[in-house]
Amino acid sequence: MNARHLGIAEALREGIAEEMRRDARVFCIGEDIGIPGGWGGAFTVTLGLEKEFGERLVNTPISEAGLTGAALGAALMGMRPIADVQYADFLFCAMDQMANQVAKMRYMSGGRLQVAMVMRAPVGVTGRGSQHAQMMEPYFLPLPGIKIVCPSTAYDAKGLLKSAVRDGNPVLMFEHKLLYGSKGPRTETGAIDASSDIPEGDYTVPIGKGVIRRAGSEVTIIATLLMAHRAQEAALILEREGISAEVIDPRSLVPFDWELVKESVAKTGRVVTVEESPRRGGLGAEIAATLVEDMIDFLVAPVKRVAAPDTPAPFSPPMEKFYIPDAERIAQAARDLMEIS
């Protein structure tokens, strides 16, 4: 069978279309979607889908709380909405609906109802200053009731989207603006190629399963989204220096593939976590704490966190470059660990 080579935006578009064809309960709801001549959302993911699906692309007013609550209400009635916000930062406007309603509704009902809904949200520090740039994972990581996925390749994006639509629980999908491969007027400066061969026909990527992007034996580097790509660059640098790094892309944050991470740590004994978000209270902190609790006998060095500083994202390019972890910083963290033991 022919595989096609697609970017994340195209792969997601195809995945959404296939799910909408497969299941009449699936629909899209968001801002600036379904407008002929429009953008297909902020990053072209739903571009042109209105031609086939018409009113199943529900274009909303600029009302993030409203559209999130509306997706929840429809989900309670058995629909399977795929909601999206233009920038993940806007989830703060919808935070009551996300945190108090979407996340808790099933639990509060004693498990008697279900909320099968997907929320898609673009993240990434990308030349837009502080309010169109946040990595939102740390705000949702401690929130029980919402699954979180973070695809870094087009293959995973399509497969995880399909799993999310079919999951039956609320799933929040963070997508990185530099990885979309958006085309035309929505092309992103500094974009990274995250395209993949996409097989013909249906496939899914399981939620909660990470993947080893690069096998290694001396240090484990854990990173998602854009940072997963930077981590692989770092591993190449390290390889040239004779250091064998294993790169794990967890792909899902909730549930988290602890098994995969622990297997790797049992082998390497050294861990670098990488985040594009501030260091305080992030995924790296959660990984470090868990590994100290569960894997202390295997660790030969402290867990090292590479993260953004505890500031908002700055605008000016040199400051922004300083803010976002790059391959060299990740590689240096690994070298530091190798020196300790």
Binding site: T68, A70, G73, M77, D96, Q97, M105, S109
Partner: peptide, 22 residues
């Protein structure tokens, strides 16, 4: 299940009505 955040139930009701219409 009752929504105890003031106003929080209103967008949900809108979504329920949206599903009825769709």
């Amino acid at each position: 299940p009752a929504v105890a955040i003031v106003g929080g139930g209103l967008p949900i009701a809108t979504g329920i009505a949206l599903s009825f219409k769709m």
